[in-house]
Design a protein around this nucleic acid. Sequence first.
DNA 1: GCCAACGTTGGC
DNA 2: GCCAACGTTGGC
Length: 154
Amino acid sequence: MSFWLFKTEPDTFSIDDLKNRGAHGEIWDGVRNYQARNMLRDLLRIDDRVFIYHSNCSVPGVAGIARVIETGVIDPTQFHPESKYFDPTSTPESPRWITVKVVYEKHLDAPATLASIKSHPELQDMQLVKRGNRLSILPVTDDQWKSILHLGNT
DNA sequence: GCCAACGTTGGC
DNA sequence: GCCAACGTTGGC
């Protein structure tokens, strides 16, 4: 089992929205970056655990945890002309955007804020805090996972 | 709103 | 292949 971090803007889709989907979970749609797509398509496995990270908000940070329940999911929004994620160059015969479905697992007791992550020496290697990082899907090491759990459960 | 740090697009 | 222009991300 591997660990990951997914970014989301809580104004658009928050961990509470994911919680409200219940056991049905939610397709992680809208990823339109090839590096991120490749991780979703090629590296994520069922039962992998995912930090849900709230970005572009007043207090950015890891809010909670989700679990991968389905892989190789064709992002349906690429075929929806009314969607902001519509991709007219993708075809049902050869879909370009593949993603996963996740289900809510739990909130951290308190969010592990970006500020607190930056203040912890053992987390300075996280891709999240690396200069210029903009990927919305990031790998997390076992040690980083444990450290952030600790940050969020004090 | 500002702006740095990207990724993408398209002319050449 | 080069590179300028443009769009996006996301912290602050």
